[in-house]
């Protein structure tokens, strides 16, 4: 039976990409460019965060302009807990995840009473409040932020090494994407996309749409919080700018660029945007100009984002 909503797992291209990502550290070390591993790990983390936002924007029709708040909450949770003597990632990262989820529960419970542009501006408002709160609290380091004493440890695994950290980030991202696919293919995923397309009718069919949206909002917040925790662990420092609206805007750009409502849209957008930044910046200090032209070209010529473009090209014989 035809099933248009089901997200298929195309084993061959998927395995090829995973194999490339697994082999990347070996290539980087062989090429004598170990610096790229930190960059690559950052890309993987942003891929996770952007995917969580894609779940909201692309599949739930919830255009959140405050997603950075959940990232910041997770990052600061790690930065605050570590000096208290908690050094295990097994505790720190779940705590970051929980922080993102709780903040999303509080913000979502209020903002999801509204929709459309009002929802966009409400989420922005709460994230900005969090930004100014962090900015002015001296216990959180005000505008200097906080530095982590060292990278957390993951049991026997020492995350101090960039290669180990890279593989952990890769594992988290892949687990995240698989979980997202499972969620979307499950009945709750159908319901989510139904709400995106026609919320009133969904209610008239008996769906508790508000509760469903809030649940997904919390899940996305949790994933973003986890991403924030990973980011703090990788960078070794956190700053209030993690909460700023520009960060939320950047995440949104990643999602739209990659393809809202495509499973790999968020990951693809994060990878392309960050890689383009890195590549163009090597050649000119005016790299934002290049990024701007690139984004403009994509809006005009690939309305469904890069994932949509890939699909279109891929389906042509």
């Amino acid at each position: 039976m035809r099933d248009t909503l089901r997200i298929p797992l195309r084993p061959r291209p998927a395995l090829a990409v995973v194999a490339m990502l697994v082999l990347l550290p070996i290539a980087a070390l062989a090429a004598g460019q170990p610096f790229y591993l930190v960059f690559a790990a950052r890309v993987l983390i942003y891929a996770l965060i952007a995917s969580s936002l894609n779940l909201l924007i692309g599949y739930g029709g919830m255009v959140s302009f405050g997603h950075a708040a959940f990232v910041g909450a997770g990052a600061y949770t790690v930065a605050v807990l570590m000096p208290m003597g908690i050094g295990s990632a097994w505790l720190l990262w779940p705590a970051a995840l929980l922080a993102g989820a709780l903040l999303a529960l509080a913000i979502g419970a209020i903002c999801l009473r509204t929709s459309g542009v009002t929802f966009i501006m409400m989420t922005l408002a709460f994230a900005q409040m969090a930004y100014y709160l962090v900015l002015s609290l001296q216990v959180l380091g005000s505008d200097d932020g906080l530095a982590l004493p060292k990278r957390p440890s993951l049991g026997v695994l020492d995350l101090g090494g960039d290669t180990a950290f890279y593989y952990v980030a890769l594992a988290v991202l892949l687990a995240g994407l698989l979980a997202m696919r499972a969620l979307l293919n499950a009945p709750i995923g159908r319901a989510l996309q139904g709400i995106r397309d026609n919320e009133t009718r969904m209610e008239a069919l008996g769906f508790a749409t508000y509760r469903l949206k809030l649940l997904v909002f919390v899940i996305a917040g949790a994933a973003a919080g986890l991403g924030g925790g990973l980011l703090a662990s990788l960078n070794g420092l956190v700053g209030p700018n993690l909460f700023n609206w520009t960060e939320s805007g950047l995440l949104m750009v990643m999602v739209i660029l990659g393809g809202a409502g495509r499973l790999i849209g968020g990951a693809l957008g994060a990878a392309v945007l960050l890689a383009a930044e890195e590549l163009i910046a090597e050649h000119t200090i005016h790299w934002p100009l290049g990024i701007g032209v690139l984004l403009l070209a994509i809006v005009l010529f690939a309305p469904q984002g890069l994932a949509g473009l890939a699909r279109r090209v891929g389906s042509d014989p």
């Binding site: 099933d3 248009t4 159908r190 319901a191 139904g194 397309d197 009718r201 969904m202 069919l205």
Partner: peptide, 16 residues
């Protein structure tokens, strides 16, 4: 739900 098939539309109603 224009992006859902007819059957998927009905499945949503059953699920709801």
């Amino acid at each position: 739900f224009p992006n859902f098939t007819v059957l998927e539309n009905l499945a949503l109603a059953v699920q709801g």
